[in-house]
């Protein structure tokens, strides 16, 4: 039994942390968020490293690693609050690799894995307005309008932009029923995507906590750093409590996706519900620790706060996931009335 990253996983995480920190300084995040765009040159560089194909089998041009490794990359993207179409391309890769036809795999996986093209994917269930991530500018779109999963090129459907409070990612809505069916079973891929997204939420929470702790050490009031007051320090301690619970459940779920599929449905729902709540609670508490300064447009915490708020409702609201946890924990199923 060993609940820790191995050397290779540690190296992947550290490399991602370093590279993303240098490419996405907070000024850069702000510039991209305010213009609602991505930086193509940065994507060319990072996409070229094969990150989107990290969990795609080698025979399809991927790196053949697992969901743990993908989740770690997503955690670092969250930590950097990076405007980057990595998650969407990686997620589409997982769907196509595990459920696509041979032809779909050959057509899309090598180019997606090497970052030459990007994909758009749905982030909500069909009955919840079909919010898409990264659909504009994508070469291929995976979606489900209630008739089963499909794959289309942008010319085959209609995409309309959607302005959400989170401007560090591109959202849109899709209509039309073009393209082809994805023939296989997508349950595993959906669970894996949900877990990778929980990784991103964990990274957002980690960074929002670090910002609060740093501020609490530096900011002085009444003649001492505010972090010396228990009203503030205990709030920071609670942030760590939330972050570490989210991380334990998310890492465990990622490991289940790779190694213990029978535990996956429960593990994925616990991870997403907990990480969603942690990301929002920590971001909100971080704003409180910062005080007025973090309520200003010029402060960078807003990017984490807004991305955490929007992301927590994607890939199943925490409420829906908790309903599923209650089911699997032994209370039996109960369909929720709404999202």
């Amino acid at each position: 039994m060993n609940f820790d990253l191995n050397d290779e996983q540690r190296a992947i995480k550290d490399t991602a942390r370093e590279l993303l920190a240098s490419r996405f300084k907070l000024d850069k995040v702000r510039e991209l968020a305010e213009s609602g765009s991505y930086d193509d040159a940065i994507w060319k560089e990072i996409g070229g490293l094969g990150w989107a194909g990290i969990a795609v089998p080698e025979e399809h041009g991927g790196q053949g690693l697992g969901i743990v490794e993908l989740m770690l990359l997503c955690e670092e993207v969250g930590y950097a609050c990076a405007p980057l179409p990595l998650f969407s391309s990686a997620a589409a890769g997982l769907v196509i690799a595990s459920a696509g036809s041979d032809e779909q795999r050959e057509r899309w996986l090598p180019e997606l894995s090497s970052g030459q093209v990007t994909a758009g994917i749905p982030a909500t269930a069909p009955e919840d307005d079909s919010v898409m991530i990264d659909a504009d500018g994508a070469a291929v779109l995976a979606f489900d309008r209630g008739e089963g999963p499909r794959l289309a090129e942008p010319s085959e459907v209609e995409i309309s932009g959607l302005d959400l409070i989170d401007r560090t990612r591109r959202y849109s809505q899709l209509s039309g029923e073009g393209g082809q069916e994805i023939p296989g079973e997508i349950d595993w891929a959906l669970a894996a995507i949900t877990i990778a997204f929980a990784g991103e939420l964990t990274g957002l929470a980690q960074r929002a906590m670090e910002m609060a702790v740093e501020y609490a050490r530096d900011r002085e009031q009444f003649g001492r750093p505010i972090g010396a007051y228990q009203g503030v320090s205990h709030a920071c301690a609670k942030m760590l409590y939330d972050v570490e619970e989210a991380r334990s459940l998310t890492y465990y779920a990622a490991w289940c996706a790779d190694a213990q599929p029978e535990s996956l449905p429960l593990a994925a729902s616990m991870a997403k519900a907990r990480a969603s709540e942690a990301a929002w609670d920590v971001a909100a508490a971080s704003l409180q620790v910062h005080g007025g300064i973090a309520f200003t447009w010029e402060h960078d915490l807003q990017f984490f706060l807004k991305r955490a708020r929007v992301s927590s409702g994607l890939y199943g609201t925490p409420r829906r996931h908790r309903n599923r946890v209650a089911d699997i924990a032994g209370l039996g199923s109960l369909e929720p009335a709404t999202a």
Binding site: E245, S248, N323, L331
Partner: peptide, 13 residues
């Protein structure tokens, strides 16, 4: 159900 789910997540964490 919601409280049970939270407890389950707490116990697992």
């Amino acid at each position: 159900r919601d409280r049970v789910a939270r407890l389950k997540m707490g116990v697992e964490a």
